[in-house]
């Protein structure tokens, strides 16, 4: 009996996974949301809660759309992309260019901004990320390069467009009142467009072959490779998608804020990371939900503390989540 090297005894399949509460993160999340909402309704009144929630959905929608690309790129390439926030800025300025300089109708200008962002994302992949991966660059190396790229993007935009506040020249004074909740009309548009796009994104990811392949690659790249997906092509598509949606999120954020500077995307970056980590890094649906949650938490916090704190509250949620459940709401336990 020599050199008997047997191959895998298959892993013991069914295991009596304890159905502890800890293992039902969605349930917990929903319970916490309901409890917090109830507390706020009781403490601050239904109207105040409703108003804050609507505001939260407005900012949550562009955070969600910004985060979905960030998480897909991370999941697919293990790239912590510090330049992603500046892709939002790029989209917003590209749309501005379309509207003001090229004189396009706003909707067309937005599509133009999205398209240009998508193409730029693909160019970075082909010109920078792919060659670096071929060279065998490590995760930290790529992270630092994304930091450099963030500088080039942000200050490139600033070089061209200047540091002054810009806006799309949309009428922001018009206010809509629904169910006694006041909302600027642009905000309503942002919210509706944002939520529709989130749903559309989710459907694309769930229903189309490309979407499923992107998620497969993001969830488990080695598995996807062995199942014969053309990874090079999917990676390119992922970049087009991530950057395009980021560009769109940038336009929405810029519309909601009404005025913007070349820094706004970078300022959003940590909120995007918060959404990504809340939802479970690499998980596209998680990022969408995480984005909405971050928006809600930030706005709800304004019922209790000064509104100036809301960004910091978002970051605190990020840190608390990292401590309590680094794999995120939808993530499975792994090495984190």
């Amino acid at each position: 009996m020599s050199e008997v090297v047997a191959t895998a005894g298959a892993p013991v399949a069914d295991v009596d996974e304890d159905r502890r509460l800890r293992d039902r993160p969605l349930l917990i999340t929903a319970a916490v949301l309901v409890a917090v909402s109830l507390a706020l309704v009781l403490g601050e009144g239904l109207h105040a809660w409703g108003q804050a929630s609507v505001n939260g959905l407005v900012s949550g929608s562009y955070v969600a759309l910004g985060a979905v690309g960030l998480t897909l790129v991370y999941g697919t390439l293990k790239l912590t992309n510090f330049a992603h926030g500046d892709m939002l800025t790029f989209g917003a300025y590209a749309a501005l260019l379309g509207k003001v300089t090229l004189g396009l109708p706003f909707v067309v200008a937005v599509a133009f901004g999205m398209l240009v962002s998508a193409v730029l994302g693909l160019l970075f992949e082909l010109g920078m990320w792919r060659p670096m991966r071929r060279k065998g660059a490590g995760a930290f190396q790529l992270m630092l390069m994304s930091l450099g790229l963030a500088f080039v993007l942000r200050y490139g935009i600033q070089f061209v467009a200047g540091t002054e506040n810009k806006n799309y020249g949309i009428d922001t004074t018009a206010v809509v009142t629904i169910l006694d909740l006041r909302l600027a009309r642009v905000e309503l548009v942002v919210m509706i467009v944002g939520v529709v796009l989130i749903l559309a994104t989710a459907i694309i990811l769930a229903r189309t072959t490309l979407g499923r392949q992107m998620r497969a690659l993001s969830d488990n790249s080695s598995l996807a490779e062995t199942t014969g997906i053309d990874t090079g092509r999917i990676v390119s598509v992922t970049w087009l998608f991530a950057a395009g949606v980021a560009g769109l999120a940038g336009v929405l954020a810029a519309m909601a804020a009404n005025s913007f500077t070349p820094e706004f995307g970078f300022r959003l970056l940590l909120s995007l990371f918060a959404a990504v980590i809340l939802g479970g890094i690499g998980n596209a649906y998680g990022a969408l939900v995480g984005g909405l949650l971050i928006g809600l938490v930030q706005e709800w916090s304004t019922l209790l503390v000064d509104a100036n704190w809301k960004i910091a509250i978002g970051f605190s949620v990020l840190i608390i989540m990292l401590i309590v459940r680094p794999q995120g709401i939808f993530g499975t336990a792994g090495r984190v």
Partner: peptide, 17 residues
Amino acid sequence: VRRDQRVIDAYLGGAGG
């Protein structure tokens, strides 16, 4: 151990499956 039937089974069974 060399003579143990369970060991032989585990190795051969493992190799087979």
